[in-house]
């Protein structure tokens, strides 16, 4: 905060354009959210008869019903377990790999970067059946670990790429001086690289959390017991095949979005915690 206030302010024209762009985004975003929010307080029949009107007598019935009928409490807990474990694992695995492939002078690092990039190109639908067969063989179906491992694997390529682009920019001199001091690489990673990476850690965590929180396919296919369902899977049960129950659906969608929004508000401060605040002052 303080470091930027020292900066010379941008010219008025830029500020004007900035306001226009930002406000355009905000209007486009607030409107749907607002509509979703107040619609979730209306009963099904009222949503159909007056889709755009504000609720006549706002009620949280939809939330209560969605929460109990959809067993969303259980689903919420499962989602937290899957998302947290997978996100933390992804972060450490990705950052370690990023450090490995950027700061070590081995030829194979090009191979690894290439291989990981390939992962970005695979659609989940293309692997779901063979992966399911493997999980059946390994008795991983209906286990939490059987869900979490594919979560991690599918997030690694993106996280590593983001990690690589950032870690690469850390001056080699910092690492070299530590090497000369005889520091172990594990120490360098934890004590030097990791603290320097706060913004990219935040980026990876936010994007991984987002992807894991919204992930549907793996939980859906690899689990059969209600006790294992995540929020998106539970919520999909309200999206009808031939008819719809809008009230319940909207309420459960709000329940699904809220944790993500809260998470972002908490974590976004880390995004802009500058490089400059660490040990690195050029």
């Amino acid at each position: 905060m303080e470091k930027t206030s020292k900066l010379i302010a941008a010219p008025v024209a830029w500020r004007a354009v900035a306001y226009v762009l930002m406000i355009a985004f905000v209007v486009l975003t607030i409107f749907p959210l607002f509509w979703l929010g107040y619609s979730s307080l209306k009963p099904h029949a009222e949503i159909i008869q007056h889709p755009m009107a504000l609720p006549r007598s706002p009620s949280f019935d939809n939330y209560v019903n969605a929460w109990t009928e959809g067993k969303l409490d259980l689903a919420m807990m499962n989602s937290f377990i899957y998302t947290t474990v997978a996100t933390v694992s992804t972060l450490f695995l990705a950052l370690a790999a990023s450090f490995g492939v950027t700061k070590f002078p081995y030829k194979s690092r090009k191979f690894f970067i290439g291989a990981f990039s390939l992962g970005l190109m695979i659609t989940m639908h293309a692997v779901i059946v063979p992966l399911f067969l493997v999980e059946v063989k390994l008795h991983l179906v209906n286990t939490r670990i059987g869900v979490i491992i594919p979560f991690i694997a599918f997030n690694l390529p993106m996280s590593i790429l983001i990690g690589v682009s950032y870690v690469r920019g850390i001056p080699d001199a910092i690492i070299e001086s530590a090497e000369i001091d005889g520091a172990k690489y594990r120490w360098i990673f934890w004590r030097i690289i990791f603290p320097l990476c706060t913004p990219v850690v935040a980026t990876i965590v936010i994007l991984a959390f987002l992807q894991h929180w919204n992930e549907f396919l793996f939980v859906f296919v690899f689990t059969t017991k209600a006790a294992m369902k995540s929020l998106p899977v539970a919520i999909t049960q309200f999206a009808g095949r031939l008819n719809f129950e809008y009230g319940l659906q909207y309420a459960s969608l709000v329940i699904g979005i809220l944790p993500m929004i809260i998470f972002y508000i908490i974590f976004h401060a880390q995004l802009i915690k500058g490089f400059g605040e660490g040990s690195l002052k050029e």
Binding site: A96, F116, I149, A153, F189
Partner: peptide
């Protein structure tokens, strides 16, 4: 540093 991620990914 590199292999743990790689093994999960390959599998």
């Amino acid at each position: 540093f590199v292999l743990p991620a790689f093994v999960i990914y390959i599998g």
